[in-house]
């Protein structure tokens, strides 16, 4: 098992797609702040409204966007970037490439049926994917923090910042592992690059809206159960950036464990039974 993980980490270090996707995450973070900066200049009349496709609403003329940003704070921006799925898209693309290329290249033949049980082979891929999603989320968080310091400044960093930051980051890393597991199982079921990426893209972009719609229907039927409380992407978006209470932490960990268990078991059973 350790040998399999050793090989996975070697491949990770050599992986061009990891480096490209990580750079794209940093780029999207920087781009988000640039858009806000341009909007701020539009508000101040330094550049015409509509520059670069950015239109500033007249309703917020009295307050500069940068000031609004300072109110939201660095953690708030981090929440917008992680909760909107922007970074999630590139993490998803990487995980799809990471998992499905084993089939498209045929390299899975070098591990499956070579003295390792199928469970160990799948587990090694699952764990290495978890590691990669943690790393990419950390890159996103680090970029959001660094650029946030430059654009917003340190005004939002008070004595409460560190515990809020650590609890938010900790939960997001766990959520990232769980969602990465969901992508792994989709890749295992599909085993096709185009299909896997397409399905995962739909999941990242549409599923939260769909779940919210289902919840509205459930609410109209006076049902207490809310699907959005259990779908991992909705929980990521709902994660509070300040004063995270113990109930959310407990619920969040439950959702993480639930999706890790479901994705791992489903993927493992499929990998064990399906021919390569």
């Amino acid at each position: 098992m350790l040998n399999l993980l050793d090989a996975e980490f070697y491949k990770w270090k050599k992986s061009k797609s990891f480096k490209v996707c990580s750079l794209l995450i940093v780029a999207i973070v920087i781009f988000t702040y640039i858009m806000i900066y341009v909007a701020s200049n539009i508000q101040d009349g330094k550049i015409p409204n509509g520059t670069g496709g950015i239109i500033v609403s007249s309703d917020i003329e009295d307050e500069n966007i940068i000031d609004v940003l300072k109110t939201i704070g660095i953690l708030g921006m981090m929440s917008e970037i992680l909760g909107s799925g922007l970074a999630g898209i590139f993490i998803t693309v990487f995980v799809c490439i990471w998992c499905i290329s084993e089939y498209t290249n045929g390299a899975v033949k070098n591990t499956a049926g070579k003295g390792y049980t199928r469970t160990k082979v799948f587990l090694s891929k699952y764990l290495s994917t978890a590691w990669c999603t943690v790393f990419m989320n950390l890159i996103c968080i680090a970029a959001a923090f660094a650029v946030g310091i430059i654009v917003i400044g340190t005004s939002s960093i008070d004595r409460k910042f560190l515990p809020d930051f650590l609890s938010y980051v900790g939960m997001q890393l766990l959520f990232g592992i769980a969602f990465g597991g969901v992508v792994v199982v989709i890749c295992e079921l599909v085993r096709n690059m185009a299909g896997g990426i397409a399905i995962c893209m739909i999941l990242v972009t549409v599923s939260t809206t769909f779940v919210n719609g289902v919840d509205m229907i459930l609410q109209s039927m006076n049902m207490k159960f809310q699907l959005g409380d259990y779908w991992i992407l909705n929980v990521i978006a709902k994660c509070p950036t300040q004063s995270m209470d113990i109930n959310f932490v407990g619920h969040g960990i439950f959702v993480v464990v639930l999706w890790i268990a479901v994705s791992f078991l489903l993927g493992m059973v499929h990998f064990q039974r399906k021919d390569i």
Partner: peptide, 18 residues
């Protein structure tokens, strides 16, 4: 079953580690 974006040596290094 080889990785196209790696060299021959790197591919065998993966197998060696496995």
């Amino acid at each position: 079953g080889v990785y196209p974006n790696m060299t021959a040596k790197e591919n065998l290094e993966v197998v060696r580690r496995v």
